[in-house]
């Protein structure tokens, strides 16, 4: 669906009340917001109204909550200051504006974002859990994802659609050769986004190829792009059927019609 600027501008109100559903519209609005000063200032004013409404709803929390929060605070490490700000006008073309929303949705859903895009590789599971608790993982993963996405503009629409879907599942698995594959699965639409980190570099003339390995047939899901600093840019795969696993093999340059080597990854996709 296309929106005129006018339409986008009138979304300031709904946006300030968190009433935009994740998806294309939110993506577009975020992008618009990053280059529309007057919209940003309107949103700020509306957020103050929302703040007043929150204060008007003031309710005493259960008394034991205070001790619980303070105890949690005492054992929780704080994040260092961030270098970037929420609105980044100078990066309007390359920024991934859905990320703040995505991170919020996913973080609260309690999904292990820590393993995203290679952040996992240098850590033990324990360290990871700890890191997640501190939310550092989120920041690191965001930075990684954002960097990866800069390379994947042509997929922007499809990516945004999947990543913004209301009920995505995050899956991750180490490959048998090291490194990790991370999948954001939109089961409802039977599509996914996959990125990898830390896969071993291949000799010239070899590529990594993705497969949807089903009970009946195996379908190519495309080649993995060359890794940048160990991270491959996200690839979109569609048309997943029940029973499919996401496979990864090493193939001759240009890819194969069917796998010619043993998969180094076979990740079940619950659709």
């Amino acid at each position: 669906m296309r929106f005129f600027r006018q339409d986008l501008h009138t979304l300031t109100g709904a946006y300030a009340l968190d009433a935009l559903e994740p998806g294309n519209e939110l993506t577009r609005f975020n992008r618009h917001l990053s280059r529309c000063q007057s919209c940003a200032s309107e949103v700020r004013g509306f957020r103050e109204v929302a703040t007043a409404m929150a204060f008007a709803a003031t309710t005493d929390p259960p008394t034991e909550m205070r001790d619980q929060v303070m105890a949690a605070v005492a054992r929780t490490r704080q994040l260092p200051p961030e270098v970037r700000t929420h609105v980044r006008p100078r990066r309007t073309r390359s920024a991934a504006p859905w990320i703040p929303w995505l991170s919020g949705a996913i973080a609260t859903a309690g999904i292990v974002l820590a393993v995203l895009f290679g952040f996992a590789q240098a850590h033990t599971q324990n360290e990871l859990n700890q890191a997640r608790a501190q939310n550092q993982a989120l920041a690191a993963a965001q930075a990684r994802v954002e960097a990866a996405l800069n390379q994947a503009r042509e997929h922007d629409q499809a990516l945004a659609e999947i990543l913004g879907a209301p009920h995505v599942t995050l899956l991750s698995q180490r490959t048998s050769k090291g490194g990790v594959a991370v999948v954001v699965l939109d089961a409802a639409k039977r599509q996914l986004v996959v990125a990898t980190s830390g896969l071993p570099a291949l000799p010239a003339g070899k590529v990594y190829q993705l497969w949807l390995i089903g009970p009946v047939k195996i379908v190519s899901a495309g080649l993995l792009p060359t890794a940048q600093a160990g991270v491959t840019t996200p690839v979109v795969a569609t048309g997943i059927v029940k029973g499919d696993k996401l496979g990864l093999t090493v193939e001759p340059a240009g890819g194969s019609k069917q796998p010619t080597t043993v998969p180094i990854l076979a990740l079940p996709l619950p659709v």
């Binding site: 103050e48 929780t76 704080q78 994040l79 260092p80 200051p81 609105v87 939310n135």
Partner: peptide, 13 residues
């Protein structure tokens, strides 16, 4: 508590 350092007064109170 965790993200207090990310608070930017320029973006609102």
């Amino acid at each position: 508590w965790r993200t207090a350092a990310r608070f930017d007064p320029a973006m609102g109170g």
